[in-house]
């Protein structure tokens, strides 16, 4: 997939370099292929989502120039952030982000990256988290879960996607607020974690619905509680943590951002482009199927959303001791 895009991109770029001209006075249009940086490796949830956006744009001919997906998974997003920050042509560099967009600059101040400097193109969705156990555990409610996990102490094993990741943050919350001492073991990705729960190697996980869906449908994995504000339409019988008396919800942002220094004209163009993607039937269908929440958000609204998210993550990371 990427290669053909690239080939087309390379050919198009060389051919057009001689014929096309920049500096059209009014509306911005990309005049060469757009670098579409993905803050995650190939094959994961974030990657699939990014490639879906790309295919929607391609199929509906929303852009005159192709988007070229580039996976930069290194350093928990650090590699992608550095690449976007140092982009030679900010008007043709956009990036799909996760929550590492907030946490990585906080944890690695040496990168000198400020999330707020990126151009707010559009928040496409917020991914949700649920608490999962294997059906053979016999646990069907959050209360039973707490009872069992408390009894087992550090014998109760929770899996997640890396240290200080979203999963780790939720696990810390449960441990600190419910008197648990669950052991947290990091794995490479959400899919690997779900597989370990389904194979009964782990006691529980806090997977996104899309990661656990296969095992939920086969009946192996049971959701106990959702870390959302309202019940998820896909899991109407699963209560939220708030209903259970907890004051905690947690989401993963799925947003497209522009490289720092992107011109206002270009930002306006990408705002429009991704609004069209968001409104497309394919995207809405995907949102529903994967139990994603959150409306489209861009511009000032998105910047203020980021502001609250950065503050919140700073507090969370300070509380867990990950940063000072």
């Amino acid at each position: 997939m990427i290669t053909r895009r690239t080939m087309i991109g390379l050919v198009a770029a060389t051919m057009l370099a001689s014929t096309s001209f920049t500096g059209i006075a009014h509306a911005f249009e990309p005049n060469k292929p757009v670098d579409f940086i993905i803050m995650a490796g190939k094959g994961g949830g974030a990657d699939k989502m990014a490639r879906l956006m790309q295919s929607i744009i391609e199929k509906n001919k929303l852009s005159t120039r192709p988007l070229v997906p580039i996976n930069k998974s290194g350093g928990s997003g650090a590699e992608a952030l550095i690449a976007a920050k140092g982009a030679r042509d900010p008007d043709h560099t956009i990036m799909v982000t996760l929550n590492s967009f907030f946490t990585t600059p906080l944890r690695q101040p040496g990168l000198k990256i400020d999330a707020m400097k990126f151009a707010p193109i559009g928040r496409m969705a917020e991914d949700t988290f649920l608490l999962w156990v294997h059906k053979d555990s016999g646990i069907t409610t959050f209360e039973q879960y707490l009872e069992k996990a408390k009894k087992d102490g550090s014998k109760w094993v929770m899996g997640g996607t890396g240290k200080n990741s979203e999963d780790n943050i939720i696990t810390d919350y449960l441990n600190n607020n419910y008197g648990l001492s669950m052991k947290y073991i990091p794995y490479k990705g959400g899919g690997a974690v779900a597989k370990q729960v389904a194979g009964k190697q782990l006691n529980s996980s806090v997977n996104n619905p899309s990661e656990a869906l296969g095992f939920y449908e086969s009946g192996d994995m049971v959701p106990l509680v959702a870390f959302t504000d309202e019940r998820l339409p896909m899991f109407p019988d699963v209560p939220t943590l708030k209903e259970k008396g907890g004051d905690f919800s947690y989401f993963m942002q799925r947003a497209v951002v522009g490289a720092p220094g992107m011109s206002d004209e270009a930002l306006a163009y990408y705002n429009g482009l991704f609004k069209k993607v968001y409104d497309s039937a394919e995207w809405q269908d995907y949102k529903k199927k994967k139990s994603l929440m959150g409306d489209f958000m861009s511009g000032k609204d998105l910047v203020s959303y980021w502001g609250t998210q950065v503050d919140r993550h700073r507090k969370i990371l300070k509380a867990s001791g990950a940063i000072k």
Binding site: G41, K72, S73, G74, G75, S76, A78, E79, I82, A83, G162, K163, N164, S165, P186
Partner: peptide, 16 residues
């Protein structure tokens, strides 16, 4: 551990 390792000369290419 969540930490970068052996990033020679701080070249970001090694971070993945």
């Amino acid at each position: 551990s969540g930490e970068p390792r052996l990033i020679f000369f701080d070249i970001t290419g090694f971070s993945h």
